[in-house]
């Protein structure tokens, strides 16, 4: 800690914009009859995603008592789905989310996530609502919707569902040396996406039909070419990833399998294994309505609004000053 670094990393003028954006978001959902919730940051379960590391905190019932391990939520997803299963109806949240090790120009280990769920909405309907919300905040812009396949074809000229690892690697090599081996095709798709495509997506683009292997908690369906795809969409704008949405998986058995598969991958990658959110499986067993949900990086949206190049310019105290 440097005692001279007391000042905020954001200008007060930017924090005024931040306050206005928070108010705009709340007004948007109030008008649409979506209830605000604030689920707990602490949980007994950690996120299963092998590429997200939960921050740990210890709780003791009195100083010196045996410590119990809790985890800071990496997104409010699990808790909000438990509310949906308890018949909450449409809900949204401006949540603090925490991710260990994620710090950079576009990442702060503690950030604000706008997440919402819409019972009986299709992914297409939720994309409409994402567009309406972003338009309410940023004003009218030129929007596009492209499937993951169309996006790859347009920007790098390959079909991502057919391309081989070698073909994807060959796209990268002229621009970025990637001298490692990785048998996981998604690694190479993610590299092409983040290194070659994403920086070019300045105006908002909604991308849908992701590879089934990148489904996370989305349903898997077949596209018009008979390829299995995830009913998942992403919003890109300002050259960065802004939101991630799903037609939510509702099958408890499938959910249990995906948690288990994540846990296996954590083990084989030598990552710490942590309590899985089995209560989500129970919630799905009791039944949640067919719904679509999306998580949007509130700080990044504000970056676009104020023209900031780094996330620390839009939060009061960026990581090195928190």
């Amino acid at each position: 800690m440097n005692r001279n670094h007391w000042q905020p990393t954001a200008e007060i003028l930017t924090l005024r914009e931040r306050a206005k954006m928070l108010a705009d978001v709340r007004a948007f959902f109030a008008e649409r009859g979506v209830m605000e919730v604030d689920t707990q940051c602490l949980s007994q379960a950690a996120v299963s995603d092998p590429f997200i590391d939960s921050l740990e905190v210890s709780y003791s019932s009195y100083p010196g008592a045996e410590e119990q391990r809790y985890y800071l939520q990496s997104s409010p997803e699990y808790a909000m789905k438990r509310l949906l299963a308890a018949d909450s109806g449409p809900i949204y949240q401006l949540a603090k989310a925490f991710r260990n090790g994620e710090v950079g120009r576009l990442h702060n280990p503690e950030f604000t996530m706008l997440e919402w769920y819409r019972p009986r909405f299709s992914a297409q309907q939720l994309m409409d609502e994402v567009q309406a919300l972003v338009t309410a905040v940023l004003g009218p812009q030129h929007w596009e919707r492209l499937s993951y396949r169309e996006l790859f074809k347009r920007f790098v000229g390959v079909d991502p569902h057919q391309a081989t690892i070698d073909q994807l690697k060959a796209l990268l090599e002229p621009h970025f040396e990637c001298p490692f081996t990785d048998d996981r095709k998604d690694t190479w798709l993610e590299l092409v996406m983040s290194h070659l495509i994403e920086p070019k997506l300045i105006e908002p683009v909604l991308v849908f039909d992701f590879p089934a292997s990148q489904a996370a908690l989305a349903e898997v369906v077949e596209d018009d070419q008979g390829v299995k795809v995830a009913a998942r969409f992403e919003l890109y704008a300002g050259g960065m990833e802004l939101a991630n949405g799903y037609q939510e998986l509702r099958d408890p058995a499938e959910q249990a399998e995906r948690l288990e598969a994540d846990d296996q991958q954590r083990e084989s990658s030598g990552l710490p294994r942590r309590p899985l959110e089995t209560r989500l499986v129970s919630a799905l067993e009791s039944g949640i309505p067919a719904c679509a949900g999306v998580a949007l990086g509130f700080d990044r949206l504000l970056m676009i609004k104020v023209g900031a190049s780094s996330i620390k310019e839009v939060v009061p105290f960026g990581f090195e000053r928190c």
């Binding site: 590429f51 120009r105 990442h107 996406m193 991630n244």
Partner: peptide
């Protein structure tokens, strides 16, 4: 530059 998709590797 730290690069990490929301779902995927860093």
């Amino acid at each position: 530059e730290f690069v990490k998709p929301g779902k995927g590797q860093a």
